[in-house]
Design a binder for these strands. Structure first.
Lengths: 212, 212
DNA sequence: CGGCGTTATTCATCAACGTTGAGCCTGCGG
DNA sequence: CCGCAGGCTCAACGTTGATGAATAACGCCG
């Protein structure tokens, strides 16, 4: 299939110099994932484009899902533009957060990446629950920053879940503006510092399980 | 919910169950499992010996584990000889149960089948929790037969678990006679009819999870 | 009522999938 | 100069999806 060229370049053992294998895989994966989506992209295809053995993907990234997560970490960082969302008036942070998340779904790239079903969306949710959460904690600061950030991420994770991962039948689905209307106050409440040391029910960690 | 039709027994298409292949697979599997153990036996090898496609194993038995379960159901039935254990004086049933289970480990066939690690022993435990339980319920009869049989199977499952599936370091392991000494009273207690209608907490169903 | 295409259902095949374990070979620290 | 660790290849693993025969009941017309 690939090079029948006289160069049997792929010898066994450790390669010569400092091979940029990882980057080659990520680059090929980004292209193919965006082009054919998650399910439509096979590890073997990525490996072929990158010019490496398929087993190397499992070796470097653990699994196909891990590779996807790696690609998305880059892609999400660009699309979500976390830093860009965080700067600005804290009072309007909820609006910017919602816009960033809903905006993902108007991004064609994201749709082809994400509208494939199973593991792909988990990766995105997990991204939110790690990367965004860390940034938020750092941004919010203060004593209960973690709790507040968790609450925010929980809400956003639920949004992603109901919008994509387990989408409701279209009549029940909310439009973007409805989402904005409904979720903004919730986010504002979640972001607000605790008024006092009430037993504020401690925002539940996992908020993404759906009834059916 | 579905049709209350009295006898739509005749299905529509091709008749179910093509005997030669299924039996050929089971037969080949029994041979290879006994000869090379669970891990040492590949589904492709079984398929080759049986002269069928490897995918048929997944089709007929769901998975390699399922095939193993099928083979073991036969093998267990012979080795455990449930019927033989059940007949006789109910007063000495505990002794016979323990002897049957510990006897499995003195059976060379069982060791090669089972001493392979991962999924193989789960199958045996699951066998106990279905087949033996059903027979026990039937044998015990009476009102709380299910509860008593569940208690018995829980104990025996625990025995299997600690003896093989998650074996303790040898100093901590019990000898066969120690097991007999310790577990017989427990089994007797489990088998005893409930003295009265206490809220007997209903013997816990899953008793096989270990700390680490 | 009997023949016959239609349809439904099961069994079998093939290629491909993602993943793993064993081993190879190079680069580097001692 | 040698041992060892690490990037890597290769073959094989268990499993899946698409596709195609085989087969039996149904619909129908005559």
């Amino acid at each position: 299939m690939n090079n029948a060229a006289p160069a049997p370049a792929r010898t066994r053992g450790r390669p010569r110099g400092n091979p940029p294998t990882r980057e080659a895989i990520v680059s090929a994966a980004r292209t193919l994932f965006l082009e054919r989506g998650y399910r439509g992209t096979t590890v073997r295809a990525v490996a072929a484009v990158a010019g490496v053995d398929a087993a190397l993907i499992a070796y470097h990234f653990g699994s196909k899902k891990g590779l996807f997560a790696d690609v998305m970490q880059f892609q999400c960082a660009n699309a979500l533009a976390v830093d860009h969302v965080l700067v600005g008036d804290p009072a309007t942070l909820p609006e910017r957060l919602i816009e960033a998340v809903t905006g993902l779904w108007e991004d064609a790239d994201f749709l082809t990446l994400t509208a494939q079903g199973d593991e792909a969306a988990e990766v995105i949710r997990e991204y939110l629950e790690s990367e965004l959460l860390g940034r938020l904690v750092e941004f919010l600061g203060g004593r209960d920053a973690t709790a507040r950030a968790t609450a925010v991420v929980t809400i956003l994770g639920g949004l992603i879940y109901t919008r994509y991962l387990n989408p409701l039948p279209t009549p029940a689905a909310l439009t973007t503006s409805e989402i904005r209307e409904i979720l903004t106050p919730a986010l504002r409440a979640a972001l607000a510092p605790r008024p006092r040391t009430l037993t504020t029910t401690g925002a539940g960690r996992r908020g993404s399980s759906a009834p059916a």
